[in-house]
Design a protein around this nucleic acid. Structure first.
Length: 271
DNA sequence: ATGCGGACCTGTTAGC
DNA sequence: TGCTAACAGGTCCGCA
């Protein structure tokens, strides 16, 4: 699912429709998500005005005066804005009925997503308090990655996908950024130079930024808040292109499994 | 502290 | 054509 660009695409799509509006009612058809939907979503949220919709890593944060709701889209989740009443389809687990009649609908076939209440200090919530810096923020630098990776033996791809290091970089964009930066995905994180980490940071920011501009990547079923897919898939250079020619050197891209995740790279361009 | 594998759940696709 | 296994955008947790 949703990596950071898809979550940001969702945030941008729903934000103008919910900011400043109150939640009128919440309908929970299936409370069993990754964790049970927090009871406060039913007891505290109705009547509250959404002051702002923020994003931290892959979490969406809905701030109200009573506290903050966290929404994670997991592998297959989506949040859509419905302007007209619609019959609930399978996997339409939660509806947020807004003042004015608009409905925010959470759909998630695999139910790896979550909807949790984080209280008034969401930054201290266990799921958020050990997250690394936002990848698109100024504090995400080559020096930061270099410092944090010393003595780390995990493959640099795993390191980059660790939300305690930097949140939001999932399997697709880790593959893409490492190719862009010319770094072999299996190289030990602690054996990547400062200069190459600086290159990696630029690659991550470029890939994420372009993907956001194109509405994210739809492989199978991601849709934005308007129900439309993202168009970054056509810009992917390695993910899903195993065996096809590297766009830089022309040699066939290799695919391996690393940590049960599909890893695609160019044996020539990435060292 | 770090690293690894399993767990959660459903739907689609590849292979026999 | 039909059944089964593998795989899919995430990431937490327990154990070594």
């Amino acid at each position: 699912m949703p990596e950071l660009p898809e979550v940001e695409t969702t945030r941008r799509g729903i934000e103008p429709h919910v900011t400043g509006h109150s939640v009128r009612h919440v309908t929970i058809r299936q409370p069993q998500l990754r964790w049970p939907v927090s009871p406060e979503i039913s007891s505290l949220l109705p009547g509250q005005r959404i002051d702002v919709v923020r994003r931290r890593g892959k979490y969406l944060l809905f701030d109200t005066q009573a506290g903050t709701m966290l929404v994670h889209l997991g592998m297959s989740g989506s949040l859509r804005v419905l302007t007209a009443p619609t019959v609930a389809l399978p996997h339409d687990h939660v509806d947020f009925g807004m003042e004015g009649g608009l409905v925010l609908r959470f759909n998630d076939p695999r139910r790896f997503g979550s909807i949790l209440w984080a209280g008034l200090t969401p930054q201290t919530h266990p799921l958020l308090n050990s997250m690394g810096p936002e990848p698109l923020s100024p504090s995400f630098t080559g020096a930061y990655l270099y410092d944090r990776s010393r003595s780390r033996k995990v493959p640099v791809k795993h390191f980059l996908m660790d939300s305690a290091v930097v949140p939001g970089v999932g399997n697709i964009y880790a593959n893409e950024a490492l190719h862009e930066a010319g770094i072999h995905p299996l190289r030990a994180a602690g054996r990547v130079s400062l200069a190459r980490y600086e290159k990696l940071v630029m690659a991550v920011q470029e890939v994420l930024g372009k993907a956001i501009a194109m509405g994210g990547t739809t492989l199978r079923d991601f849709v934005g808040s308007d129900g439309k897919p993202g168009y970054f898939r056509q810009s992917l250079n390695v993910y899903g292109r195993a065996g096809e020619p590297c766009r830089r050197c022309g040699r066939p891209l290799k695919e391996i499994r690393s940590g049960q995740r599909s890893t695609v790279y160019c044996g020539e361009c990435q060292r």
